[in-house]
Simulated scan of single mutants.
Amino acid sequence: MATDIKDTAHAVDAAAVMRLLPARPRVLALGEPTHGEDTLLDLRNELFRQLVEEGYRTITIESDCMAGLAVDEYVTSGTGTLDEVMEHGFSHDWGASVANRELVRWMRAHNEGRPESERVRFAGFDGPLEITAAASPRQALTALHDYLVARVDADLLPCTADTLDRLLGADDGWTEPAAMMDPSRSVGQSAEAGRLRLLADDLVALLDAQTPHLITTGPREDLDRARLYGRTAVGLLRYHHWMADPSPARMTRLVGLRDQMMAHNLLALAERGPVFVHAHNSHLQREKSSMRMGPMRPEWWSAGALVSAALGEEYAFVATALGTIRHQGVDTPPPDTVEGLLYALPEDRYVIDAGRLAAALGDTRPGPRVSPWFGYAPFDPAHLADSDGIVFVKDVPQVQ
């Protein structure tokens, strides 16, 4: 058995990952079981540098899609400074990560002097939101409106900028922290919010209807960005609507809507070429995702499940599993878990052929590992068939 398992393991590099797949996928997703560990992000960076040689030109991470536009401007054209984009171009405090800073620095250096077709691109694919809080839709709505004002007949616009501004009101109404726990504190189902949802729908419909004209008015990049504004505005308004919902399905709707926004952004990025995606395993797996939130355990279809349904074999998912995070109380895994079996192998890192591992295990499936720390989600052995591969990292040390 141990020999069979060892035969499924290979040194971690992009070539080993690609050998697991029947063809180069349009979206190659690498998950992680915990956030905030630069050891895992350094590994992601190394794989991306190698994947660029395989034809991948875009990396996208679990960060605000609107803020990420500034990072992409910096790495492609040098707009701004590294310090500025690290401070303002990321959500979830990702900008403080040394590994993320190194990724952005390398991308800028790689692009220097290269033709546009060879440049690498950065994107966030998350919405401007957390699980239970969301930004005001002002930035996305007004940017979409401004784009259309400059390019289409004024009579076709469903409203003026002043109307949008009046309906949006103060941004702190949208970002009210108490709405996380108390739906009655959300403005998402107010009369103004309802009117804004209709106007956002009309603006996106106008953008779509005017596409033949709009592609003649400037770079295709400008139209793609306007579509991002439209997706974000509609998604945020929908999210706010359900934040105000007091029903038991509230959290299930919210986590599902977040991943739906992620999926739409991934599919749009995939239209311009192969994309390397990095996010939590739960956002990228094909099986249903779930999360313990106090007494609730909502289940939803992840962005990966939605993109896989749309792209079929052009979507690939490689999960990351790990042995220890001792500084978080995650010690040596029990030997009867997937992590325990892999931890017994001699090297520190492996790419595992998940299908061959499942075959080597036969009917004897390992038990699920239980994490003593809420911030780490162990690999679910029931998901072996869901993954195209597994990257295993034996030990995640504390990085100062």
Rank of each mutant, 00 (worst) to 15 (best):
Q50D: 03
H88R: 15
A309E: 15
E271M: 05
D182H: 10
L257A: 09
A358G: 02
A209T: 11
A135Y: 01
L20G: 08
P137K: 01
L257K: 08
L47A: 09
S136V: 03
N281F: 03
N45L: 05
R253D: 06
T81Q: 01
A15V: 14
E176S: 07
T34D: 10
Y239S: 04
M180N: 09
S63C: 12
R231C: 01
V27I: 12
R105S: 14
R151P: 05
R119S: 01
Y376K: 07
A16I: 11
V234D: 00
E116M: 05
S308V: 01
S247Y: 07
A359G: 06
L28Y: 01
R238Y: 00
R238N: 02
E271P: 07
P378W: 08
N111R: 10
A191V: 14
R195W: 01
T364C: 11
M18D: 13
L357N: 12
V52I: 14
D353A: 14
L206Y: 02
M18V: 11
P397D: 09
S136D: 04
L361R: 09
A178Q: 14
A205P: 03
F48K: 04
M66P: 12
D202C: 08
D201M: 06
R49T: 13
M243A: 04
G31P: 08
V370D: 12
A191W: 04
L103I: 07
Q50N: 00
A109F: 06
D201S: 14
R253Q: 10
P334C: 08
P333Q: 04
P115T: 08
P183Y: 07
Q398P: 02
T211K: 14
A270H: 00
A29E: 02
Q328W: 15
T58M: 06
R108T: 13
P298E: 14
V234G: 00
A96K: 13
L223I: 00
A200H: 10
A67D: 10
R121N: 01
K288M: 11
A200R: 11
L167P: 11
R57E: 02
A200E: 09
A321V: 12
A305L: 06
E84A: 15
A191P: 03
A140K: 08
G36F: 11
R227F: 04
I390T: 05
E314Y: 02
H35A: 13
L257Q: 12
R292Y: 07
D4P: 06
L41V: 15
D201F: 09
E299F: 05
E46T: 13
S190N: 10
Q210D: 04
A233V: 04
T81S: 06
A270K: 00
E313H: 05
P346L: 08
S282N: 11
A233D: 02
E347Y: 03
T217K: 15
P22E: 06
G188T: 06
